[in-house]
Computed example of a mutant assay.
Amino acid sequence: MNETATAPTAPLRARAEIDLAALRANVRALRAHAPGAAVMAVVKSDAYGHGAVPCARAAVEAGARWLGTATPEEALALREAGLPGRIMCWLWTPGGPWREAIEADLDVSVSGLWALRELVAAAREAGVPARVQLKADTGLGRNGCQPGEDWAELVAEALRAQSEGLLTVTGLWSHFACADEPGHPSIAAQLTLFREMLAYAEGRGVRPEVRHIANSPATLTLPESHFDLVRTGIATYGISPSPELGVPADFGLRPVMTLSASIALVKRVPGGHGVSYGHHYVTPGETTLGLVPVGYADGIPRHASGAGPVLVDGKWRTVAGRIAMDQFVVDLGGDEPPTGTRAVLFGPGGRGEPTAEDWAQAAGTIAYEIVTRIGTRVPRVYVNEEQAG
């Protein structure tokens, strides 16, 4: 878990400022989008790069009733940090920490018989019933149990184990493939199949606490998919799951992370001066260059070379030439801001700075990747840690 003191004692080369008040407001906005369902704040991958423990605490304070992680290790770390309530994890491999998860009162996801059998063995060993959620593959084609005979067999074996007191089936769930593409025909098809698989399991006696399929885009745009619980990942952090759906403000969301660095050097160079590896940028005339001390080792995408936007001294600049491992250059056009001037790579956008979506467009990727890839060399600095009121 990447956690940093709120007030650093020395100037930082770079910092990712995490606004926990914005995160709480996002959770409250998401609750309003799905008033009939509980909210699961997904904090996998260190809360999409924002810091799992502080973000999980803030989400719970704002009314998230569940926390979600990919790996059991992520979920166990939340428990070890004292996070209460329901925590679910869903990405298991053979020999995983089943017993530890059971004893930590985690909800674990099962997609196939191998996993169910390992879980049941661990429950026997622990002498404690497991909390298990059965995942259905309704069309995403990744994890999840196939409909038909496979689903029938998984449900039957789970119910047998439940009758022996070894587990409780607490949930039935699935995941959308194209909820971020409005009108995609797979959305309706997946919803129909999910309802059929729910009906089959419930007809055999499963009484789940929660049924859920809605991710961030479905939470924001598909109320018919909300069921008992919505799982909000990227939207929790104030980023739109798809530009086609709208910008964050359209959904009452505010980006939580602001990434900045201190300009390390400003120098005047003549025209025709090559910049960075390969000289893919050559100065068109006499100008000034600013050195920004972050690079792809910090998670700045090399694919944004020559295109990534940066706000320096109130003006948008563009990465000049290649992004290197630890640094990149911007052409300041003759301006000479003092060294130490803050270069803002992305933030909420309300003060003229670029956003994570702007960097995603520059790199040919999605905003999820931009925030999640920011590395551990960049300290997370938390602001508004105390909830107002």
Score class of each variant (00 low, 15 high):
Leu265Asp: 14
Thr221Met: 05
Ala177Lys: 11
Ala25Gln: 14
Gly295Met: 06
Ala104Ile: 06
Arg373Pro: 00
Thr258Lys: 13
His33Asn: 04
Gly299Ser: 07
Ala59Arg: 09
Gly352Ile: 13
Thr138Arg: 12
Tyr281Arg: 00
Asp105Gln: 02
Glu80Ser: 13
Asp150Val: 08
Ala29Tyr: 10
Leu20Trp: 12
Trp151Leu: 09
Thr170Trp: 07
Tyr382Thr: 14
Arg204Ser: 01
Arg28Trp: 02
Ile239Arg: 00
Ala249Trp: 02
Val247Ser: 14
Asn26Gly: 05
Cys145Pro: 02
Gly252Lys: 05
Glu224Pro: 11
Pro129Asp: 06
Ala14Val: 14
Glu336Leu: 06
Thr287Ile: 07
Ala62Met: 11
Leu30Asn: 10
Trp92His: 13
Trp316Asp: 03
Thr138Leu: 02
Arg79Val: 05
Leu116Lys: 03
Thr232Gly: 01
Arg57Asp: 01
Ile263Lys: 10
Gly364Trp: 02
Val43Gln: 04
Gly68Trp: 09
Ala367Tyr: 06
His279Asp: 03
Pro379Arg: 05
Pro241Trp: 14
Arg373Lys: 11
Pro185Val: 12
Ala356Gly: 14
Ala32Trp: 08
Trp66Ile: 08
Arg65His: 12
Thr221Val: 09
Arg79Trp: 04
Thr318Cys: 08
Pro338Glu: 07
Gly51His: 13
Glu386Ile: 10
Pro72Ile: 12
Thr170Ala: 10
Ala101Tyr: 04
Pro94Met: 03
Ile213Pro: 09
Pro293Trp: 03
Val294Gly: 03
Arg131Thr: 02
Arg204Phe: 02
Arg195Glu: 15
Ser305Tyr: 03
Cys145Gln: 03
Gly290Thr: 13
Thr138Pro: 01
Arg302Glu: 07
Thr339Tyr: 00
Asp150Thr: 08
Phe227Gly: 01
Asp331Ala: 03
